[in-house]
């Protein structure tokens, strides 16, 4: 009887679950919507990306880019920054909603933990996708993990 109860409880409500928060996939793309109500100019997404040797070789750099998937709005653009140790870099998607990512940026920090930030130029909801990959010196993809620290 307990089996049937469990089965019934799960099966009867089995549907595709849609997530309202930052969705992190194993494909090293993460998408979400910043500032849903359009009132927070300081909205910042903050994650830690851990780079490691997954058998493809040690990390040379973290490469990342950001794509603003919302409709264009004057002076409202999405930025991405990478920081590790004493090195930092930034990129901006110059055209919202065109389906193209920003120029890629890299920080050459080897294996370890990189800070990755996403923010925007003023208040307004922005849906976006971040692409992030730890790469070896020969530009092979290597171990990449992410932890979201903040999304507000």
């Amino acid at each position: 009887m307990p089996h049937r109860l469990f089965q019934k409880a799960v099966a009867t409500i089995f549907t595709v679950i849609t997530l309202g928060y930052a969705s992190v996939s194993g494909a090293h793309d993460a998408g979400a919507t910043m500032d849903l109500n359009g009132t927070v100019a300081t909205f910042t997404g903050y994650a830690l990306v851990t780079c490691f040797d997954d058998g493809n070789g040690p990390t040379d750099n973290l490469v990342a880019s950001v794509k603003d998937t919302s409709l264009p709005q004057d002076n409202l653009l999405v930025n991405l920054q990478i920081i590790k140790g004493n090195h930092a870099i930034s990129t901006t998607d110059p055209v919202s909603g065109d389906g193209n990512f920003s120029p890629e940026v890299r920080v050459h920090g080897g294996n370890g933990v990189y800070q990755l930030l996403v923010n925007k130029t003023k208040e307004g909801a922005r849906s976006f996708v971040v692409s992030y990959h730890c790469m070896t010196a020969s530009n092979a993809h290597t171990g990449t993990d992410i932890v979201v620290q903040q999304f507000e």
């Binding site: 679950i17 928060y21 933990v113 932890v147 979201v148 620290q149």
Partner: peptide, 29 residues
């Protein structure tokens, strides 16, 4: 620890139980 917060990935397996899903924090970790 400098990178704790998203510690586990389930390996899909239905050999014993049919259903499985994650327990996540409010940020999706």
């Amino acid at each position: 620890v400098t990178n704790w917060g998203n510690p586990v990935t389930k390996i899909q397996d239905r050999s014993i139980f049919d259903y499985e899903d994650y327990i996540k924090d409010s940020l999706g970790n």
